[in-house]
Amino acid sequence: MAVIKVGLIGGGGIASAHIRGYQQHADRIGITAVADAVEETAVARGTELGAKPYTDYRQMLADEDLDAVDICLPHHLHRDAIVAAAEAGKHILCEKPLCLSAEEAADVRAAVTAAGVTLMCAHNQLFMPAVAKAKELLAAGTIGTVYEVRTTDSFYNDFDPSSMGWRASSKTSGGGELIDTGYHPTYLLLHLAGGLPVEATAMLSTHRLKFMEGEDSAQVLIRFDNDVVGQLVTSWAYQPAESTERFSAVGELGSLHSDGTSLSYRLRSGETKTFELEPVDTFVAEIGHFADSLRDRTRPLHTEDEGIAVLGILLAAYEGARTKTIAPVLKV
Score class of each variant (00 low, 15 high):
residue 72 C to E: 04
residue 56 D to E: 10
residue 70 D to F: 03
residue 133 K to G: 09
residue 182 G to Y: 04
residue 152 T to C: 14
residue 183 Y to M: 01
residue 163 S to D: 08
residue 56 D to M: 05
residue 60 M to P: 06
residue 45 R to E: 04
residue 67 D to R: 08
residue 48 E to Q: 14
residue 149 V to M: 09
residue 81 A to P: 01
residue 50 G to F: 12
residue 59 Q to F: 01
residue 60 M to D: 10
residue 143 I to M: 10
residue 138 L to I: 15
residue 173 S to V: 09
residue 75 H to A: 15
residue 135 K to E: 14
residue 141 G to L: 15
residue 98 L to S: 03
residue 105 A to M: 07
residue 169 S to R: 11
residue 171 K to F: 13
residue 138 L to K: 07
residue 80 D to C: 07
residue 182 G to E: 00
residue 124 N to E: 14
residue 71 I to P: 00
residue 102 A to Y: 10
residue 76 H to G: 00
residue 116 G to R: 10
residue 133 K to R: 13
residue 161 P to W: 01
residue 111 A to S: 11
residue 99 C to M: 06
residue 69 V to S: 02
residue 71 I to Q: 07
residue 100 L to I: 06
residue 78 H to Y: 02
residue 72 C to T: 12
residue 89 G to T: 02
residue 54 Y to A: 06
residue 133 K to F: 11
residue 82 I to T: 14
residue 134 A to P: 07
residue 181 T to A: 08
residue 122 A to K: 08
residue 105 A to I: 11
residue 65 D to A: 14
residue 45 R to S: 11
residue 113 T to W: 06
residue 150 R to F: 12
residue 49 L to C: 01
residue 66 L to P: 08
residue 98 L to A: 12
residue 113 T to G: 02
residue 75 H to C: 12
residue 155 F to I: 06
residue 159 F to G: 01
residue 117 V to W: 03
residue 81 A to I: 05
residue 145 T to R: 14
residue 116 G to T: 07
residue 96 K to H: 09
residue 83 V to M: 08
residue 110 A to I: 06
residue 62 A to P: 01
residue 137 L to P: 03
residue 77 L to P: 02
residue 79 R to S: 10
residue 62 A to E: 15
residue 142 T to I: 14
residue 143 I to W: 10
residue 45 R to H: 03
residue 106 A to H: 04
residue 73 L to W: 02
residue 137 L to D: 02
residue 157 N to K: 02
residue 144 G to H: 07
residue 50 G to S: 09
residue 158 D to E: 08
residue 147 Y to H: 15
residue 174 G to R: 01
residue 62 A to D: 13
residue 102 A to R: 11
residue 169 S to I: 03
residue 67 D to K: 13
residue 67 D to H: 13
residue 49 L to S: 00
residue 144 G to V: 14
residue 111 A to C: 13
residue 110 A to P: 01
residue 174 G to A: 05
residue 61 L to R: 04
residue 47 T to M: 04
residue 105 A to T: 09
residue 101 S to M: 03
residue 71 I to C: 07
residue 134 A to T: 13
residue 66 L to Y: 06
residue 128 M to K: 15
residue 181 T to Q: 00
residue 119 L to M: 15
residue 162 S to D: 13
residue 101 S to C: 01
residue 46 G to D: 00
residue 179 I to L: 12
residue 128 M to S: 14
residue 139 A to F: 09
residue 177 E to R: 02
residue 57 Y to L: 05
residue 85 A to L: 08
residue 90 K to P: 08
residue 170 S to R: 11
residue 114 A to E: 13
